[in-house]
Design a protein around this nucleic acid. Structure first.
Lengths: 185, 185
DNA sequence: GTGTACATGTAAGTTGTTACATGATTGG
DNA sequence: CCAATCATGTAACAACTTACATGTACAC
């Protein structure tokens, strides 16, 4: 139940069309809640029907024509109530950890390369977050409530990627350099 | 595409019935890939049809009767190939980070309590993982390949929970003690 | 005119969630 | 016998994924 709220947040930050939202879900807000354009268009339709957003008045509401949305008071109220809601952390589902556990049973052939590849990906994501932090959150911009909150979210991303790079580095060390034996069938 | 592989791994570790699997998905393997009993029964049916597992011979294959499964060679092969497969880390979807970002727009009323609650949950999960580490992975049990891999997975859980407790502690400090102002509508 | 980027959408399938249904076994 | 627990399952829905369809605008 988070996608509609992600969209409401994005639209409050700046009214947008479906495709603009899609692009913003590929950076910024999408770092914490990803979505494809199909999900977004469908959800925009639902939110409009529910009276939480509306399309900005324009001449041609046709296919292929840009359609901008803005949040209505009902949408803002729903978002505020969601922010205050209690919701337990969702149970973890991590394919890489699971694969390592499977490797403990069927043998770890080929998994070293995969770990190294993931390490690269997480390292570059970490660098990317750090450059955003340098650009958008210099020390003097960390006093206003809004900026403090946004910076906290980014810190979450930075520390999460830091965790992954550290754990993957440790894992590669623990696995050792060479080929691993395969447990007998 | 990870649930079938989680089940294959669990069944290789120990042949089980659907309900036993469900219980193991509530601890151990479920710490990295959670699933409900409905998902598990459905997937067991599919895996059996695909010839990757089979029900151990027994008299009554009736409703209400326990049915144990074991992995067939085809299942083990599929699991091994999945372990060696490349798969990018899935894009992040974290409701709590998203909620904080929404709070930056509509105001953070009530979110402090929620962060404190999550901190408690992550702290106790961390303690739980640590007790498992003490029990199952004393230093002398970290030399065999299988044990090293399983320990790595657990370390992943431990460091992930460490990240959350640290970030949540920082977040509560940054938010300060009192009520937060609400941005004007 | 046509290829490319922009922009919105449909359709089908898989995975995950929630609620409920049914039968077997056992302790009191 | 009856309640509680064990055990397997159905059904309906919601969320997400993948592939494709359609139309507009504009540079060449």
């Amino acid at each position: 139940m988070s996608l509609p709220h992600a969209i409401l947040t994005a639209l409050l930050e700046k009214p947008s069309s479906g495709l603009e939202l899609t692009r913003r879900f590929d950076r910024s807000i999408g770092y914490f809640w990803s979505a494809t354009h199909q999900q977004i268009y469908r959800e925009l339709g639902k939110l409009e029907q529910a009276g939480q957003i509306r399309a900005l008045p324009s001449e041609q509401p046709a296919r292929g024509q840009k359609k901008e949305y803005e949040v209505l008071p009902a949408g803002r109220a729903e978002l505020a109530s969601w922010v205050a809601r209690r919701e337990d952390p969702k149970t973890v589902r991590d394919p890489l950890l699971l694969r390592l556990r499977a490797a403990a049973v069927v043998g770890s052939t080929g998994i070293r390369e995969e770990l190294a590849r993931h390490l690269d990906l997480h390292r570059s994501q970490l660098e990317h977050y750090r450059s955003i932090e340098d650009r958008d959150f210099p020390p003097e911009r960390r006093t206003a409530e809004t900026d403090r909150l946004r910076h906290l979210v980014l810190r979450g991303g930075i520390e999460l990627e830091t965790f992954w790079t550290k754990w993957l580095t440790d894992a590669l060390t623990a696995l050792g350099p060479g080929e691993q034996e395969t447990p007998a069938p």
